[in-house]
């Protein structure tokens, strides 16, 4: 048996984290990895919600600027707002990434986990960058969650 989907998405999420200079792999990096998938459940579910890869990047950028604005910080040098890669790989998985995986793991065995399980984990997050970015981008989280659950149902999600 080759690597599982989870293994592959975790590697890609870590690459996303590194590409953005993050020290930990967080939920937003899992979201970026999902949004970069060319086919399958991820684009099938994310595209109708207006969340292609570029849109996710824009939503995360907006969340960042919103955080700065809330602190009363405005940045003259726009280049500082652009993600910047790091020479180092993230050292670990952050708490938000762990939460996503925990939720996904309650739905299926590890080798059966797919993009829809990861997405549901992302949609279940209550705090942090991802739910804030979804809210700022006007994503209908409840609708996306319902469609994700429907896909998982179709797949016959357990055993």
């Amino acid at each position: 048996m080759g690597r599982t989907y989870v293994d592959s998405v975790l590697v890609r999420a870590a690459e996303e984290a590194r590409g953005r200079g993050a020290r930990l792999t967080e939920a937003e990096h899992l979201l970026l990895a999902l949004a970069a998938e060319a086919e399958g459940d991820a684009p099938d579910l994310l595209s109708p919600a207006g969340l292609d890869r570029r849109a996710v990047e824009r939503a995360l950028a907006r969340e960042f600027e919103d955080g700065l604005a809330a602190a009363g910080v405005s940045v003259a040098d726009r280049e500082l707002l652009e993600p910047r890669g790091s020479a180092r790989n993230p050292s670990d998985m952050g708490e938000s990434g762990r939460r996503v995986l925990e939720v996904a793991m309650t739905l299926a065995r590890k080798r059966d986990l797919g993009p829809a399980h990861i997405l549901l984990g992302l949609l279940e997050l209550k705090v942090g960058t991802v739910p804030r970015a979804f809210a700022l981008a006007g994503v209908d989280v409840d609708d996306l969650k319902a469609r994700t659950l429907a896909v998982l149902d179709e797949r016959g999600k357990t055993d």
Binding site: E63, F64, E65, D66, G67, L68, A70, A71, V73, V75, L80, L81, V127, G128, T129, R132
Partner: peptide, 13 residues
């Protein structure tokens, strides 16, 4: 939530 997000954003900046 907004306060913590502001901290994260400033740290990143």
């Amino acid at each position: 939530g907004a306060e913590l997000a502001a901290v994260v954003a400033m740290r990143r900046l």
